[in-house]
Simulated scan of single mutants.
Amino acid sequence: MDYLFWFLIGLAFVISFIALIYPILPGVLFLAAGFLIYGFAFSFEPFTPLFLTVQILLFISLFVVDYLGNAYAVKKKGGSKAALWGSTIGLIAGPFVIPVAGILIGPFLGAVIAELLFQRKGMKSAVSVGIGTVLAFVGTTLIKVFTQALMIGYFYYQVL
């Protein structure tokens, strides 16, 4: 039975990384699910107040980095709220419409189209905003990969 629980914990952690490519999946919740599976299957004893504080702060940072990174890039490139919404919609829809490449093409097209339609900006300006959203997505994704790996590593350090 222990093997089944460890498999489920590992699966939850793997899905949390897949969620970086398919943002419709709640990656952070899969991390939490892995921790909870361990707690219910084995023990919550390793989850000290320090462990919980660190994990909660890292959970919060995942959300903050995700939102602020994209918002900062759009603003820095002179984009509007419409571009922010367009890139977010493109980020969610892109991987389903265009598998693999859609994760980068979706936010780009979403931001560009939003800028062209709602802000009536020129193509050069809209493309600049689109590039900024893609660069922000790549940067925040790298930060999230590192943060999630840190969270999982700290979990294993505590429980093993």
Rank of each mutant, 00 (worst) to 15 (best):
M1T: 14
D2Q: 13
Y3R: 09
L4H: 01
F5T: 02
F5Y: 14
F5N: 11
W6F: 14
W6C: 00
F7A: 11
F7G: 01
F7H: 03
F7Q: 01
L8P: 01
L8S: 07
G10N: 07
G10Q: 04
L11F: 12
L11W: 04
L11T: 10
A12Q: 03
F13M: 04
F17R: 06
A19G: 15
A19F: 11
L20A: 11
I21G: 13
I21H: 05
P23Y: 09
P23G: 09
P23S: 13
L29Q: 09
L29K: 01
A33F: 08
A33S: 12
F35E: 01
L36H: 10
Y38D: 05
G39R: 05
A41I: 03
A41V: 02
A41G: 09
S43P: 05
F44C: 04
E45C: 01
E45K: 12
T48D: 10
P49L: 09
P49A: 08
L50A: 13
T53W: 06
Q55V: 11
Q55W: 07
L57M: 13
L58A: 14
S61R: 01
S61D: 01
L62F: 05
L62A: 12
V64L: 11
V65N: 02
V65Y: 06
V65F: 12
V65P: 00
V65W: 02
V65S: 09
D66N: 12
Y67W: 12
Y67T: 12
Y67S: 08
A71M: 14
Y72Q: 11
K75G: 06
K75A: 13
K76V: 04
K76F: 09
K76H: 09
K77P: 03
G79V: 07
G79K: 10
S80A: 07
S80I: 04
K81M: 13
A82R: 07
L84G: 14
L84A: 15
W85K: 03
W85C: 02
G86K: 10
S87M: 06
S87T: 15
T88C: 05
T88G: 14
I89F: 12
L91Q: 04
L91K: 03
A93K: 01
P95G: 00
I98L: 13
I98C: 01
I98Q: 01
P99I: 06
V100F: 13
A101C: 01
G102K: 05
I103W: 04
I103P: 00
I105F: 11
P107C: 09
P107I: 10
P107S: 09
F108C: 04
L109T: 10
G110W: 01
G110A: 07
V112S: 02
V112H: 00
V112P: 02
A114P: 02
E115S: 03
Q119D: 15
Q119E: 15
Q119P: 02
Q119K: 15
Q119T: 14
R120G: 12
K121S: 14
G122M: 10
G122T: 08
M123L: 15
A126I: 06
A126Y: 08
S128F: 00
S128C: 00
V129F: 08
V129L: 12
G130D: 13
I131K: 15
T133E: 12
T140W: 00
T141G: 02
L142T: 09
I143C: 12
I143Q: 07
K144T: 12
V145W: 14
F146V: 15
F146Q: 08
T147S: 15
Q148F: 14
M151N: 10
I152H: 09
G153S: 08
G153Q: 07
G153T: 08
Y154C: 01
Y156H: 00
Y157P: 00
